[in-house]
Design a protein around this nucleic acid. Structure first.
Lengths: 364, 364
DNA sequence: GATCCTATCTGAAACATTTCAACGCCCCGC
DNA sequence: GCGGGGCGTTGAAATGTTTCAGATAGGATC
């Protein structure tokens, strides 16, 4: 019954089979190398304090036994883990994955692992994730919250766990945050469209409970009124969510408008909406950009990959993530840390979906 | 200097400020409730063994102190963590996120957390992630490996950590795996195209070092020869990777073919390629499906959202993930576990990109 | 009243690591 | 020969939890 080594397979790697059942600990290594366990610990943590000969002996023992540090024990002693966590809002939106990638790169630099969670827009899930993360004693939490003012967020802060809001403004300033200037994003989108000669534009997006949506719309309206345009010519087509399906729905409603009122361009609150809208528009035979120009938001990879490449407002996603990681680490390192609100500037990426065309209405 | 409670903010939540610096432990709770720490532990782990009165007292103490279990300590004692991990191959491909969602749902059922890592197709990154996961003593590892035969994978197995390959066949059977029948997938894609009357078809995909690519191509060729078609009419357009950019490149090469040799349909090894190809085809004025029919693979959300909705071979992604989670848990629970190779059946989802059109070549 | 049982609670041990005061040792300078 | 100071090493303490053998008490049964 004893688990014998398979004779067929003569140790393919370097590490031999584990000594016996249990995975070896520092104690085993110490015994095998004939040193105290404090010395083994020193080899791991301050190798300079150990003589070369001893160090080598210990290292050989570790290799022979296939020793691997037990991170739980280390954490227990240290009081905190070597892990950051990012709780993202919508796992179906590539935007957040790009942000996550930025965070990961920041975490990597500090030699930390990154725990990625997905709240899927549901407060209960978010709370559950946060609960777990607190139990894990993560070193810091990055989050794009369902509701930035939720009580479970303040709870985290009260516990003294560094927390950074990502892509949301920290509001009252009781935590760090990184965000992009959404009002400005709305402005440049509309400026781009008016530059292209559009006089009747729709803003597609909702619900307005989402700060981003509110601000992008606000920016749009600001420019519109500054240009002295009639507010009635900037239509708001609300959606229930920022998804492809909702974008299609908005496309249908757009098509249903009487020709007089129908806009020649739309500005969508994100790229998913824009892609859905583009699809619907194409399906009913509208040409983009000739009949309808479209501007999206986020500049996700699929925006550039659309059949008609999508003009979009790009956010510096990875940098957003990297900065967030930097802030959370700064807060973790320095107790006297002042909360910081980083705000990035969005940038318009013009593509075919708003290419300059002599507009039919003007041409004739 | 003492950190006094802010007078402005009269305890917004229920939990009062932590007692003093340190986060409270079971010992603190025990002291505060006037019981032994064993009892506190029982309240947490086997509440039935504690009298109602005591339990309530302890629970009140926990609430008052804002006690949160320390997961590291729990893990240390238990010898293993309450965490699964998924190392995905390509964070930029929504397919893997859907798989991850399935895994998460499986993990959720077992009340485990899921650690999501991204190897980004790089073996070194993958090895680093695995290293960390072993240090964390995760309960099991799910992985879509860069190279299924890599030595660091066998290492994991030798350590006795349950490992399940996702979307890859376990090959020699020395670990569990879940996969989808890619040969069959290739077959149904080609059958669909030949049903639609196409007589010259291209397979776009590569590199062939990827098992999926090889098998989908194999399935395609099988059907082709079974139908008695000339092998020269099933062109293989190789790509360097399964990305949108490579899809665009393939589109260019396709357009460059002399009209006689140009296929009327393509079967792409995944949806990213198909989307890139669709974009390029549209850009140069080819109509889809009239001039070129396209079949993708994976049926990611963006396939349905494309301007011309993409016909695609759907894999049961979430189920793949859920099954993988189930297998890894089975292996973790039962040491005498027999490795299992789960194989799912793909399914064709027909959309506009291969809609039946009277094909020009036949019409005239 | 002794015995047994059950329900409840206790205290110490164990888990793997890091830290730290202390120790032995050797060499240097006096 | 002795004090002093590095250097390298040691052993014990501490971290927060779970587990488990025992302790205690309160009934019920004989």
């Amino acid at each position: 019954m004893a688990r014998s080594a398979e004779p067929k397979e003569p140790a393919p790697g370097r590490a031999p089979a584990p000594p016996h059942g249990r995975t070896p600990s520092v104690k085993d290594v110490a015994a095998s190398a004939g040193v105290s366990l404090g010395t083994v610990s020193n080899v791991l943590n301050k190798p300079a304090a150990v003589s070369a000969a001893t160090r080598e002996r210990v290292e050989r023992a570790m290799a022979e036994l296939g020793f691997v540090r037990n991170e739980s024990a280390r954490q227990l002693r240290a009081g905190t883990s070597r892990t950051l966590a990012y709780v993202m809002l919508d796992g179906g939106n590539p935007f957040f994955h790009d942000v996550a990638r930025g965070i990961e790169s920041g975490a990597e630099d500090a030699d930390l692992s990154l725990f990625i969670c997905n709240s899927d827009g549901r407060a209960a899930r978010e709370a559950k994730h946060l609960d777990r993360l607190v139990q894990q004693r993560v070193q810091g939490i990055l989050i794009t919250p369902v509701d930035p003012s939720a009580s479970h967020l303040r709870e985290i802060g009260r516990r003294g766990i560094p927390l950074v809001m990502v892509d949301r403004l920290g509001g009252t300033g009781d935590c760090c945050s990184v965000a992009v200037d959404d009002v400005l994003g709305g402005r440049i989108a509309i400026e781009h469209l008016t530059d292209r000669g559009h006089e009747r534009v729709a803003f597609v997006g909702g619900p307005e409970s989402i700060g981003q949506v509110r601000e992008r719309l606000l920016g749009a309206r600001q420019v519109w009124s500054e240009l002295g345009r009639d507010a009635a010519d900037l239509i708001h087509l609300p959606t229930e969510a920022l998804t492809v399906a909702e974008g299609r729905g908005a496309g249908e409603r757009l098509a249903g408008l009487p020709a007089r009122r129908r806009p020649t361009a739309v500005f969508c609150a994100n790229d998913l909406l824009a892609l859905g809208l583009l699809q619907q528009a194409t399906a009913i035979g509208m040409r983009v950009p000739e009949d309808l120009a479209i501007v999206g938001y986020d500049d996700i990879e699929f925006a550039a990959a659309a059949a008609v490449p999508l003009t979009s407002v790009r956010q510096p996603r990875e940098e957003l993530g990297r900065t967030a990681a930097r802030l959370v680490l700064a807060e973790a390192g320095d107790p006297a840390h002042r909360h910081e609100q980083a705000c990035f500037v969005p940038e318009l990426v013009a593509r075919a979906s708003t290419a300059a065309v002599r507009h039919p209405a003007r041409k004739r």
